[in-house]
Design a protein around this nucleic acid. Sequence first.
DNA 1: AGTCTGCTTTGACCGCTGTCAAGTATTTAT
DNA 2: ATAAATACTTGACAGCGGTCAAAGCAGACT
Lengths: 255, 255
Amino acid sequence: MSVSSYNFSSFRSGSVVRLAADNSSYNAACGGCPSRHISLCNVLSARDLKKFSEIITDIRKSAKQVICAEGDESGNIYNIRTGAVRISKMLSDGRRQITGFLFAGDFFGLSCRNKYSYTAEAITDVEICSIPRAKIIDSFRKFPELGERAFDMTRIELEATHEQMLLLGRKTAREKLCSFLLAIRGKYKPLDQGDDTIVDLPMSRSDIADFLGLTVETISRQFTGLYRLGHIELEGFHKVVLKDADALFALAEGD
Amino acid sequence: MSVSSYNFSSFRSGSVVRLAADNSSYNAACGGCPSRHISLCNVLSARDLKKFSEIITDIRKSAKQVICAEGDESGNIYNIRTGAVRISKMLSDGRRQITGFLFAGDFFGLSCRNKYSYTAEAITDVEICSIPRAKIIDSFRKFPELGERAFDMTRIELEATHEQMLLLGRKTAREKLCSFLLAIRGKYKPLDQGDDTIVDLPMSRSDIADFLGLTVETISRQFTGLYRLGHIELEGFHKVVLKDADALFALAEGD
DNA sequence: AGTCTGCTTTGACCGCTGTCAAGTATTTAT
DNA sequence: ATAAATACTTGACAGCGGTCAAAGCAGACT
């Protein structure tokens, strides 16, 4: 089964993705996990995974539900099996910054001490697994390769946030949207159709705005602008066809 | 010897901070290190530190010199012993985003794979130690507490970048500058003088602008604005007296 | 099917911050 | 010390993106 079977277009329907059990003896919680091969835990042997799975709780949330809230006691870390999640921070007057969109295989909740420093909400229906913080930190000691993998993933995330800071601080609205479309495309490598690439956007315009430091109206105008230039086409609100990725790439950095 | 002895006001002169050797038998490279107690390596025992110090090279750079450049092969990670460093990324047309200011005890260069994804430059004269990537990753395995400490520091940095994304995407110019002044104050806990707090800013106005996603002119106008409100006073370009930290705090979040 | 509700698009206008330019202060070099 | 270069401040003006308002669209629920 290939990775692309799990790109996020596959769960937009909200239906539950359930793999047929394979022939291994994994604990049910992890054995059938559709994101296992791209998750934190993919470094564990079958034997270690079974042990590891004992500390895991399965959770499902439907779209728009809160998974954890800024300020809550950060008792658990969460790993996404299917679906899309947004991570956000708010100012007291309601201004919101989305700091990341997370998908199958991504985890969150580790970069906090006592309290979550951000809110995580389900964008689509999601399946996630929850792991007590104290226990996963134990696991990092028990299974050093797991700790290394978590560290690696954290470093990759840190690099991505640096790129996003460049975007937020220095790019124009058009550059921001082009960068975003390409980043989403790159991250989930959706199927190519001819020369065009179709990108699924499970999040709303307002989510995109709050991710890029813009308003909904500006996002909408930029989508229209790119359409008029012939670089994209819109199929409903949540699908974008990239007609000319090279042009988008050029626009993304102001060249 | 307290941490505050090493707050960054102490090296603004550019003079070399050198501690009297203590009575231990540390290797010279690390034994006299003025940032040892706040650095990565502070978790190592005297014995382990001695071993660890064998892979370290001391480096000095004077202000404005490049330590490593975006795109260079990322062979080393760097730890700051004294001085201030700026980390930045650039767009092809020269627009720059500073993603962080680093000081004694901070390290950089780990969150990259083959190439550095950012440029690091000395703001003041600096003393840094350089450690080959491959060897420090080895050390993480040999001294697990060192790896955990690096992981912890990386997670703290990641949380800070989330806060900075909120600032870049959603705060006004005034809110950005107030947040910045308070963050610098909080980070280095400089000496209080009466009720006022004096904050040292080794970086230029243009560095501050590129850190906050603004222009030099806007930074300058905001400094003047805060001065006219009576919340700060300027002592030369590189010292700010916070006359009313509470007011700044309120302004930092738009309350 | 039809209505409702929330999401998205579009338009008109405004204001914050950027741009350009000139003048002042500070640092560096001689 | 003096001169030159660099850094900072201030002013006038412009424009990008925000705000406010209204209309179009799509999915949800009877």
